[in-house]
Amino acid sequence: MLTSPSTDAIALLTGSYTPDSGGDGPGVAALLLDPATGRTTYDDRVKPLPVSGASFLAAHPSLDVVYSTNETEAGTVSAVARDGDGTLSPLGDPVSCGGANPCHLTVHPDGAWLLTANYGSDTAPGTVAVHRLGPDGRLLEPTDLVIHQGSGPVTGRQEGSHAHQVLVDPAGRFVLATDLGADAVFTYRLDTLTGTLERVAVNAVRAGSGPRHLAFAPGGDLVFSADELSSTVTCHRYDATDGTLTELSRAPATAAEDVVNQPGGIVASACGRFVWVTNRGADTVAAFRLTGTTLEPLGEVPAGGTWPRGLTLAAGHLLVANQHSGTLAALRVLTDGTLTQSHPPVPAPSVVCALAL
């Protein structure tokens, strides 16, 4: 459904797999979230932009520019400009990110660097790329590419490294990259003059867990991981002085016992008391309360579709990108951390992520 924006609506962008990347989505599309009701609608002012394989989106910290992975074997990333009414247009051509199947990216807080996690393939290892950004947010030359090494015990998934996420810690001191194939979180220091990465730690996690995504607690001393292969959620102590992680507690991502489940997105609340994770297989979103450093399950609710992948917190709602059903659901977060759905999900073909602006 299309609609005109209200004054208090939250602008959203969704990313989807396109026909040339195995899906039937439009690429990048613009929607609106009513924070009072949780109703999500398409923004009729903005035409979708056909960005190939737009599996993850990240916003520039100070410019009206958004970056997208182009998740294909060719391995590129794109910059997208937004004008005053939200209209989307390419900002330059896609550029190579030096690896296959880029699946996550983030902009450094200083706005000068784009960091990309390349999942790799059966024959190509996981890598992390760095690009310089121009004053207008345009993608400039690549400045570094680091190659991950490692493997794990899960046949068919961990024969080699597979970088799955890259993010900057809350202190802005280190860059962390999860690797599903290597059962590790790699810690780097970014030289903000040259755009090069120096490895400072390799944090091994439990064998066969397959860390996919991390979410920091507000204070930065705790970080939570969605473990795709072991179907768990783990709370780690994070040492901001040396970039190391220490496991503190662990919980099953779902109570469902009759499905093969793969956690996807993970989000921590602004108050630091709650954590939520999507469950692909169980098709739920699970809520956890943090008591001390222990994760306590609060229950699960239907995800509003099948194969919930991306998870985004916006205006008191969790936006759930259900890839296989092609639906975007908005779940209201209640004061006790549990979730409820007020409105039916909106159709969103091959959607895999959402970004609140």
Rank of each mutant, 00 (worst) to 15 (best):
H213I: 07
S161F: 04
P344E: 05
E300S: 14
T127G: 10
A255I: 08
A201R: 11
A59G: 09
D122K: 13
A240H: 11
V175H: 00
H324V: 15
E159L: 11
D43A: 13
R45V: 14
S4W: 13
Y42D: 08
V146I: 04
A36K: 14
G337Q: 09
A315W: 02
V107N: 01
T7I: 15
E300L: 13
T327A: 09
I10G: 11
G281T: 02
L167W: 01
E159I: 12
L145Q: 07
L197H: 04
F274D: 00
T246Q: 10
G272Q: 07
E141R: 13
H104I: 08
R157E: 12
D336I: 09
T69S: 03
T87K: 12
L355E: 01
L140F: 05
G337W: 08
S62F: 14
P102I: 03
D258T: 10
H131Y: 02
I266G: 00
E296D: 11
V168L: 04
D24Y: 07
S21M: 11
P26K: 09
A124E: 12
A282F: 06
T294G: 09
G38F: 05
G304S: 09
N101Y: 14
S55H: 03
R173F: 07
Y42P: 05
L88E: 02
V185D: 00
D283V: 11
P48H: 02
S4Q: 13
G265I: 09
S151K: 11
F174D: 03
T291Y: 12
D283M: 11
D44Y: 06
D8C: 10
T294S: 14
H104S: 13
G265K: 03
G99T: 01
L176V: 06
S231V: 07
G99C: 04
R132A: 15
A286P: 10
A182S: 14
S55F: 03
V333H: 02
S121F: 05
V166T: 11
V46D: 06
W307I: 15
R138L: 12
H343G: 13
D8M: 10
T291I: 14
F274V: 06
T14K: 04
L32Y: 02
G326V: 05
S78I: 02
A201F: 10
H164P: 05
P142M: 06
T306Q: 15
D221F: 03
T123V: 15
T294V: 11
G99R: 00
A129R: 01
L311A: 01
G134T: 00
C97T: 11
A251I: 09
V107C: 03
F174C: 10
Q262E: 15
A315E: 08
G75C: 02
T194H: 15
P170R: 02
E141F: 05
T232S: 15
A9S: 12
A112D: 15
G264M: 06
A207G: 08
P347W: 01
P302T: 07
G150W: 07
G27E: 01
P218V: 10
T87W: 09
S342P: 12
T196E: 08
F186V: 08
T194M: 09
P35D: 00
G92H: 02
E247T: 10
A171E: 12
H162V: 11
V166K: 04
G86L: 02
A270F: 09
L31V: 02
L331H: 13
T37Q: 06
G86C: 06
I10Y: 09
V128I: 08
L180C: 06
Y42T: 13
G15Y: 00
L133R: 07
S52E: 00
G27N: 03
